[in-house]
Amino acid sequence: MDQPGYDYHIDIPGTTIFDGKMAMKGYALNKMCYSFNKAENRDAFAADEEGYMAKYGLNEGQKQAIRDRNILKMIEEGGNIYYLAKFAGIFKLSVQDVGGMQTGKTTEEFKEFLASQA
């Protein structure tokens, strides 16, 4: 699916282009996270994380990223941030918390970084 010369595979540091390749790779993970739109599914995950991941057919790398709460790893495994945000919602994490987790900053440091770009 690489399209040499086409405009969509330039390297943007720290940025994953969520294209068809990533969408296929992350399908199970994203499908599980999409299910978290519903409260009963969030509760079912919280009650039995391993069973819930197995039900959605996550691969080992995806499962480990979930166990580790490692957002960058989830993205590497094909996770899309819009669905991962619903996973983060289970733990009441804000987008600044998630930003900090991905950039090695505390939430406060991450907020300062945002404001510094004004």
Partner: peptide, 9 residues
């Protein structure tokens, strides 16, 4: 929102 470049503006 995502990746090591999260927070970019």
């Amino acid at each position: 929102l995502d990746g090591a470049r999260a927070g970019f503006i």
